[in-house]
Write a protein that binds this DNA or RNA. Structure first.
Lengths: 239, 239
DNA sequence: CGCCCTGTTGATAATATTCAATGAGTGTGG
DNA sequence: CCACACTCATTGAATATTATCAACAGGGCG
């Protein structure tokens, strides 16, 4: 049941058998959730800690002028609320992008595990550091790329992370985001996202059908998005 | 000598006497650095770990089209390269904004300290989490605010962090950034930053002289920047 | 069948960029 | 002490990119 999380931890830091056993011995509750369901609300006190077993989540924040910005997206294996879990308050809303399945841990159980198992501590710490790294790349994405670049970069990142989570073979995948959500992730308007996606289809970069994205020309897409996967720190996988 | 760092750690997590002694017993080297000096280069392998004793640093990244984006700015007491230090490779360039003074630690010394002293581990972990939180706010800043809002927000954040570091009384402070650098932090052009700052001066929001910023109307500035300091997690100070 | 969500289109407007030139301040060497 | 170079700030005009507003189309679902 916890396999996606254990895989991810092992990618972050190779765990010994005892570490793995200790992690699997952790008490937890499984929760099935629907698309759109809010997991954690902005400003609320957060007590537990969540591991994402299936489906996708996203964190976002609504400004006072009503504009919304998506801060991050999470794939199975991620711990989408380590931040609020450890800092005590959620600064963002955490919401399901798709239906999914969560593992709920108690904060103090995790705290104890981390104290007793340095390898797991390091793995989780690396997870938060990579979070920061991705977030920094998003700052650059939204701050310094034009619309085509931003969207291309988002598509590349998502594909890469799916592949690393073992959820993608080939170059077709389901991007579970509406154009509205892509707009909120890239700092654009939905209208402009629509027109930009059309252009990308017209020039043969990608093909979309329903929510399925097929990348026709990965190299050109990566070039357009100035995509360099270093910031995802996937080389950890190969250690 | 290490007082700024120790203060910061204590704000993040109250340390006992033994924790403090252990931290102060850490071997380190002090390095005086000039404005503009590069501390850590994009892509380089990073071995040590840095504490900022005096002056300001910033992390930035240059895209292939030549555009530059500043990802974060650090004030004395911060550990500006925990990320690259623990992940092994620097993904961004770390550079001095002003002349300053660094404390250089060895990565394995710090690693040992963290294993032996859970309170220090928690403090440093919180530091990285707050880093992420700030980074997320920057995504929202650059993604969803207009030029005036972005700059106002930057000014508010900097003032708040300076105050928290004990470097600011009243509402005047030196913003050690050129308009070019403000532009790179906010995802704007220097020309537009210039015009926007002029407008902010004209409407009496701020006053600038040399690199000194005086905030004339904090409330209006905070409103303009939609500034809510929660994301800085300074309440840790009051614990 | 009708509603709601998502995607699409067109026209217009606002915001920010680009390019190019000038000024003001600072430090350097002759 | 002055000329010179350099960096940073400022200005204007033209342009580009993206937002806004409003309307409509299509598909899935109760």
């Amino acid at each position: 049941m916890l396999a996606p999380l254990l895989n991810k931890l092992n990618q972050l830091e190779p765990l010994g058998q005892e570490d793995q056993d200790a992690f699997l011995a952790l008490p937890f509750r499984v929760k099935e959730v629907e698309a759109g369901q809010i997991i954690l609300d902005e400003g609320k006190h957060s007590t537990g800690c969540i591991g994402l077993l299936a489906g996708f989540t996203y964190r976002h924040r609504t400004l006072r002028n009503g504009a919304r910005q998506i801060i991050s997206v999470h794939v199975p294996g991620d711990f989408p609320d380590l931040q609020s879990g450890l800092l005590g308050t959620a600064i963002h809303t955490l919401q399901m992008l798709t239906p999914g399945r969560l593992a709920l841990f108690r904060a103090d159980d995790l705290q104890r595990l981390v104290s007793e198992r340095p390898a797991i501590r390091d793995a989780l710490w690396r997870e938060t550091l990579i979070d920061t790294s991705i977030c920094g790349e998003w700052v650059a994405n939204v701050g310094r790329r034009d619309a085509r670049g931003r969207i291309a970069h988002l598509l590349c990142e998502f594909a890469m992370r799916l592949r690393s989570a073992g959820l993608l073979e080939g170059d077709s995948y389901e991007l579970p985001m509406t154009q509205d959500q892509i707009a909120d992730a890239t700092g654009l308007t939905a209208v402009h996202v629509n027109r930009t996606l059309q252009e990308m289809r017209r020039t043969g970069l990608i093909h979309t059908e329903r929510r399925m994205v097929k990348v026709n020309d990965w190299d050109r897409l990566a070039a357009l998005g100035d995509f360099n996967p270093q910031y995802l720190h996937l080389e950890a996988v190969r250690n």
